[in-house]
Computed example of a mutant assay.
Amino acid sequence: MMIGLMIILLLVLVLPFTVHKVEANLEIFLFVMGIISVFVSDAFSEELLRKALEDPVHITAAVLVAGLLFKWFRSPLEKAILFVQQKLPSGVFIALVVIVLGLVASVITAIIAALVLVLVASVVRYDRKSEILFTIFACFSIGLGAALTPIGEPLSTITVSKLDAEFFYLIDLVGLFVIPAVVLYGILAAVLIRPAESADGLDAGPLSESYKAIFLRTAKIYLFVAGLTLLGAGFEPFIKEYLVGLNPLILYWINIISATLDNATLAAAEISPLMEDRTIQSILLGLIISGGMLIPGNIPNIIAAGRLNITSREWARYGVPIGILSMIVCFVILVFIYY
């Protein structure tokens, strides 16, 4: 059984990063891997099936509603962005966008927050370096902020579901780390970015989505979360054998691999109700911080980079230093708290 689970884990960690067809159909791939893992570990039951069908409901509904609202009110939103941008100093505007998107991502979902970010970047028209930096800081902020509620992103949905926790569990667990970090990212963006408005900004391309695209994305999110629920249940024996007893600070650094792999997938494989809160806290912080370092690490990164034509090398040039520094600062705080 363990050998089978290790093979599945290797496939889940490697194929999305190396095979384009798998990456393009990640939701279906993870759903299939989840089903296989459940049968390999003999974990299938009617209760698990019911859970896999129910877990995605809230985040799927949130994505659908927010997507429709974004489509219907995009034009007024563009005008509001321009109005606010013209009334505020550049640094204040940048900080405000980064902070607000991070804080509201847990309510409107990381996906919609990323789409709003793309809209802001396309309307404001900064020079390329400034726009890339602005996008990366905002994506770090969104990735952290979305983890505060179970409707923010798949990682938080899966975590709350696996632990059978209350709605505000994640805010209590990581809120004191996440909220100051979101504010700090906004301040750093305002200080480090010196934008000169230019016609050479990034080309965001068409932003208007069809109803078909909105419903297709909603269906994919449902499959994604259902697959992660099955994957997490299938890997319970592996978690009990190899991860439950590890030092939380070791798990924190192990999860720097979230820079290249979707953090929700890793959360589904790692987190267990058998773990202490501080262990889960370390896992989550490692996942959500390092997830901003490279494009594949988080959903907002993928959306923003794709819409704004940011290459992997351009993202890594700024994302890796920001992420490493963030990891070190958070690690020092964790050491101070635990020891």
Score class of each variant (00 low, 15 high):
Pro248Gly: 04
His20Tyr: 10
Lys79Leu: 07
Gly152Trp: 05
Asp203Ala: 06
Ser122Phe: 09
Trp253Arg: 11
Ser312Lys: 12
Ser37Arg: 02
Val116Arg: 00
Tyr339Arg: 11
Ser75Thr: 03
Phe70Ile: 01
Gly306Ala: 08
Phe73Tyr: 14
Ser122Pro: 08
Ile94Met: 02
Val118Ala: 14
Asn309Pro: 01
Ala189Tyr: 10
Ile254Tyr: 10
Asp203Pro: 01
Tyr318Glu: 10
Leu119Tyr: 10
Ser75Cys: 00
Ala80Glu: 01
Leu231Trp: 07
Gly227Cys: 04
Gly234Ile: 03
Ala204Gly: 15
Lys21Met: 05
Ser290Pro: 02
Ala213Trp: 05
Thr109Cys: 04
Phe134Trp: 07
Tyr252Arg: 04
Gly145Pro: 12
Lys129Cys: 00
Ile295Lys: 10
Leu115Ala: 05
Tyr338Lys: 09
Ile111Leu: 13
Ile283Phe: 12
Asn247Val: 06
Ser161Asp: 13
Glu241Thr: 05
Asn255Val: 01
Met2Gln: 09
Glu276Cys: 00
Gly102Asn: 07
Ile179Pro: 10
Val332Trp: 02
Arg317Met: 10
Asn301Tyr: 15
Ile8Thr: 01
Phe70Tyr: 15
Ala233His: 12
Leu251Gly: 15
Val97Cys: 05
Ile288Thr: 15
Leu251Arg: 11
Leu308Gln: 11
Tyr222Pro: 01
Thr311Arg: 13
Lys212Val: 11
Ile142Ser: 00
Leu249His: 12
Pro321Gly: 04
Pro180Tyr: 09
Arg125Val: 03
Ala219Gly: 15
Ile337Val: 13
Thr157Met: 04
Val120Trp: 08
Ser37Leu: 02
Gly4Leu: 03
Ala316Ser: 12
Lys220Ile: 01
Asn298Val: 03
Met1His: 14
Ile99Cys: 05
Leu26Asn: 11
Thr265Asp: 08
Ser141Arg: 01
Ile214Met: 04
Ile221Gln: 12
Gly306Glu: 09
Ala226Asp: 07
Leu148Arg: 06
Asp172Tyr: 10
Pro300Val: 10
Leu274Met: 08
Ile302Gly: 01
Gly234Met: 02
Ala213Cys: 00
Arg313Tyr: 01
Asn309Met: 06
Glu23Trp: 09
Gly306Asn: 13
Gln86Phe: 00
Ala121Gln: 04
Ala165Lys: 08
Leu223Ala: 12
Ala219Met: 07
Leu170Thr: 08
Thr149Ser: 11
Val98Thr: 14
Met1Ser: 12
Ala267Gly: 15
Ser130Glu: 04
Gln281Leu: 12
Ile254Leu: 15
Ile35Tyr: 02
Arg307Ser: 14
Gly67Met: 07
Ile193Trp: 01
Ile7Phe: 09
Ser208Glu: 15
Ala105Cys: 05
Ile288Trp: 10
Ile99Ser: 12
Phe215His: 05
Phe235Cys: 07
Ile257Glu: 02
Leu294Asp: 05
Glu197Val: 07
Thr159Ser: 14
Arg128Gln: 08
Ala105Arg: 06
Leu101Trp: 00
Ala110Asp: 15
Lys162Arg: 13
Asp262Trp: 10
Gly67Ile: 06
Glu236Met: 04
Pro16Glu: 06
Trp72Val: 14
Tyr338Pro: 00
Ile81Thr: 02
Phe44Asp: 01
Ser90Arg: 10
Met275Val: 02
